[in-house]
């Protein structure tokens, strides 16, 4: 389920739980919760599925919000942004997959040329911490730097006899 669908599903469950409230108050509550979610996501600086789930978890089940709304005039506990922010450092985004990806992209590139960075990219795409856009940018960086020179060299090489400026490794290893 994507991030927008998660928010939509949460609000739908909230409205279903709030049927006991007056219609006006129910709509107002849904608007307040939506606004709170948007603010928490803006504060988090990301809208990926993990962040949305974290924000919704901090809000608590829709039933509890409705119960708190019926039992008190003030906002339900957990509505302030502080708990969301305070909990973020506790759950570090660095898991084994993310650490492996960065190690393979850096040290792996030195000790396992070509294979290291490619394996690193596999781990990057396995991670749920980076968005698809961020994964695509990281992949583009590696692909552009690694493969464009090869393609250019092969393109130039196919046009004539090899010269010292082309990718033709063997003659230059001893040079």
């Amino acid at each position: 389920m994507n991030a927008e669908a998660l928010v939509h599903d949460y609000l739908r469950r909230l409205e279903a739980a709030a049927t006991a409230l007056p219609a006006g108050r129910r709509a107002e509550l849904a608007g307040e919760v939506r606004q709170h979610i948007e603010m928490a996501l803006a504060e988090a600086g990301a809208r990926d599925e993990v962040t949305v789930r974290n924000v919704l978890d901090r809000l608590g089940p829709p039933d509890e919000i409705v119960d708190a709304e019926r039992g008190a005039d003030g906002p339900p506990p957990g509505w302030t942004l502080a708990p969301v922010q305070a909990s973020a450092p506790a759950s570090s985004p660095w898991g084994a997959v993310e650490i492996a990806a960065v190690l393979l992209l850096t040290a792996g590139a030195i000790f396992l040329p070509i294979i290291g960075p490619l394996l690193g990219l596999v781990f990057v795409w396995m991670s749920v911490q980076w968005t698809n856009r961020q994964k695509t940018i990281a992949t583009a960086i590696v692909v552009l730097i690694l493969f464009v020179p090869i393609i250019l060299a092969l393109g130039v090489g196919s046009g004539g006899a090899p010269t010292s400026g082309q990718l033709s490794p063997i003659p230059y290893l001893g040079a």
């Binding site: 850096t106 730097i145 990718l167 490794p169 230059y172």
Partner: peptide, 30 residues
């Protein structure tokens, strides 16, 4: 292209990508 230069590009590519991903992660935690 000189092979030595290309061999230098390999770690550079990985390191640049890693720096970008780490920066993204740090920015998200702020």
């Amino acid at each position: 292209m000189d092979v030595a230069l290309y061999l230098l590009l390999i770690p550079l590519a990985g390191i640049l990508a890693a720096v970008y991903l780490v920066a993204v992660m740090r920015r998200r935690r702020k």
